[in-house]
């Protein structure tokens, strides 16, 4: 199997996705969790980009690309909402993490 650039992009996306997943579970701070979710989302977008280019002579597959374009804008909006929510939690409880996770950094 030749090592095409699509394979490299797809494997890089998987590494980034799993790093994000680790960050999401291992850290309790809400801003870290929001960043981790964003890293996972970027990995999914990269994976879609790789999938769109596979074995295709006439350019790329437009369907995954269209999903990435709308996904990026929705992810930015959801991140802004998540940050507002995290600030609200901080304003009410004085904590930067959820009450179930008292003992972790």
């Amino acid at each position: 199997m030749p090592l095409s650039s699509e394979i490299v992009f797809a494997l890089a996306a998987i590494v980034v996705f799993c790093l994000g997943l680790y960050g999401l579970i291992a850290y309790a701070h809400l801003v870290r969790k929001i960043m981790a979710i964003n890293i996972m989302g970027s990995a999914v977008f990269l994976f879609f980009g790789a999938i769109a280019r596979r074995n295709f002579d006439e350019g790329s597959d437009p369907v995954p690309q269209a999903m990435v374009i709308t996904g990026i804008v929705v992810a930015v909006a959801a991140t802004a909402f998540a940050l507002t929510l995290a600030r609200r939690i901080h304003a009410i409880t004085g904590e930067t993490q959820l009450p179930e996770e008292q003992s972790r950094p």
Binding site: I14, I51, N55
Partner: peptide, 18 residues
């Protein structure tokens, strides 16, 4: 996360080749 990465990588190699 490491085990998940290995499983996903196997799936990705199969998927990209298709």
């Amino acid at each position: 996360a490491f085990l998940l990465a290995i499983v996903l990588a196997l799936v990705a190699v199969e998927l990209v080749d298709r």
